[in-house]
């Protein structure tokens, strides 16, 4: 019964091969993905990383300025890793300029790596981003907008796949208590970044910043959430190291709870 006749086997192999070829072609169109270098993160992403020719959305977890800064650094770290080759440039379009460039340099996005442009409205920022994507000469395009409907994101996604350039769209909070990622969007992945307390050091001082990184939606994959250590000077995230001595930390129960949730 389990024996398959060669006549029936032949047609069954062919569709599989064609399917695989189609899939590989689709992958090739989407461009190479940029892995985070963290197995726990990359394994859960459908592409094994951030696709280099599609739209990714990032928002702050809450409408506070600190979460806003965390999301900005998350984007800057990704942009720095996309533009890590010499003489490659990322483009950052925004309407209200409050970035502090020395801070961006400290996650690897140095002043020679990034080109800024300040638009007057969201529509001009989106138009600039689309131009920059279609040009294809940039390593990465970042745009900060308050509102972008499904048409706008669809245009950006098409432009990104045409220009083989990754697009990072930072959705700023418009209304308090309403997540900007709640609407429809054509983005490949959607991230929500917030600040969480960092590991207490045995000596006075602030430890490496820690974020809650939440993948709200992704195409062909499941959402997930995990705490991560913030970008280093090359823009790389890291998994938090397990606390060596839990009892010594001032908020031991919090660390223990986090360790438990991580183990789960």
């Amino acid at each position: 019964m389990v024996l398959l006749s060669p006549t029936s086997d032949q047609p069954r192999v062919t569709p599989l091969a064609t399917l695989l070829a189609e899939l590989a072609q689709a992958r090739a169109v989407r461009g190479p993905a940029l892995p985070f270098g963290i197995p726990a993160l990359d394994e859960r992403l459908a592409d094994g990383g951030l696709s280099g020719a599609s739209l990714h959305e990032v928002a702050a977890a809450a409408a506070t300025l600190t979460d806003d800064a965390a999301a900005t650094l998350f984007i800057a770290g990704i942009a720095a890793r996309f533009a890590s080759q010499a003489d490659f440039t990322a483009f950052w379009a925004l309407t209200r300029f409050d970035l502090y460039a020395p801070g961006l340099e400290q996650v690897g996005l140095g002043p020679d790596k990034v080109l800024y442009a300040q638009g007057t409205s969201d529509s001009s920022v989106l138009a600039m981003a689309e131009d920059a994507l279609r040009d294809g000469s940039l390593a990465c395009v970042v745009a900060e907008v308050k509102s972008a409907d499904q048409t706008a994101t669809r245009r950006l996604q098409l432009a990104a796949s045409d220009g083989k350039t990754p697009m990072l769209l930072y959705r700023r909070h418009r209304v308090r208590d309403r997540c900007p990622l709640s609407g429809f969007s054509s983005a490949m992945t959607r991230w929500r970044i917030g600040c969480v307390p960092s590991e207490r050091l045995p000596h006075p001082g602030v430890g490496r910043p820690r974020w809650s990184v939440e993948l709200v939606r992704q195409r062909n994959g499941n959402p997930f959430s995990l705490p991560l250590d913030a970008c280093d000077d090359q823009g790389r995230l890291a998994l938090p190291a397990a606390a060596r001595d839990r009892t010594a930390t001032p908020n031991g129960e919090l660390g223990a709870a986090r360790a438990a949730s991580q183990a789960a």
């Binding site: 490659f88 442009a117 001009s124």
Partner: peptide
Amino acid sequence: PPDIAPLVDQLAARI
């Protein structure tokens, strides 16, 4: 490395 001068001109025209 790619040349970004044409893109800069195009973006300048937008804003």
